[in-house]
């Protein structure tokens, strides 16, 4: 019973943060600020949806004792870890490429990287 409430709560948090990330992607003015919204918020939201699946698997394993739910929870944990690490590195790579291709940050008050000779 408590597990059900936790599962639904994690799902609601995860989808809400995913929604906010997409709104930021559609709303912010340039590529760097859009990356703020998508990288942080969709990673956080997807990790929370994965967490709800992990809680579901653990609760089902305690309830039924079936080994396949352990496999479900452990594989979901690995998928969430892979997602968190690869998203951070991927967004770093896109930001670096965007700055090298000459896209200036919009409305910026300071740009220390633009002052460095390439």
């Amino acid at each position: 019973m408590i597990a059900d409430v936790l599962v639904v709560a994690c799902l609601v948090i995860g989808t809400a943060f995913n929604c906010l990330g997409i709104i930021g992607l559609l709303r912010f003015p340039d590529v760097y600020t859009r990356m703020h919204a998508t990288t942080k918020m969709t990673t956080f939201g997807s990790v929370f949806t994965a967490l709800s699946v992990i809680i579901y698997g653990a609760a089902q394993f305690i309830g039924t004792g079936d080994g396949q739910y352990v496999t479900l929870a452990v594989h979901t944990l690995l998928a969430a870890l892979a997602l968190a690490v690869t998203n951070a590195i991927g967004s770093h790579a896109i930001a670096r490429g965007a700055h090298r291709s000459g896209i200036k940050p919009a409305q910026a008050v300071v740009d220390r990287l633009g002052e460095v000779p390439p």
Binding site: G24, R27, T33, A37, K40, Q107, V109
Partner: peptide, 23 residues
Amino acid sequence: VTRANLDVAYRVITGKIRPGIIR
């Protein structure tokens, strides 16, 4: 991470941003 996400959620909703690149 939780604090950062709440902060960015606030900025997504209100639109108050002041971006810049620092060293």
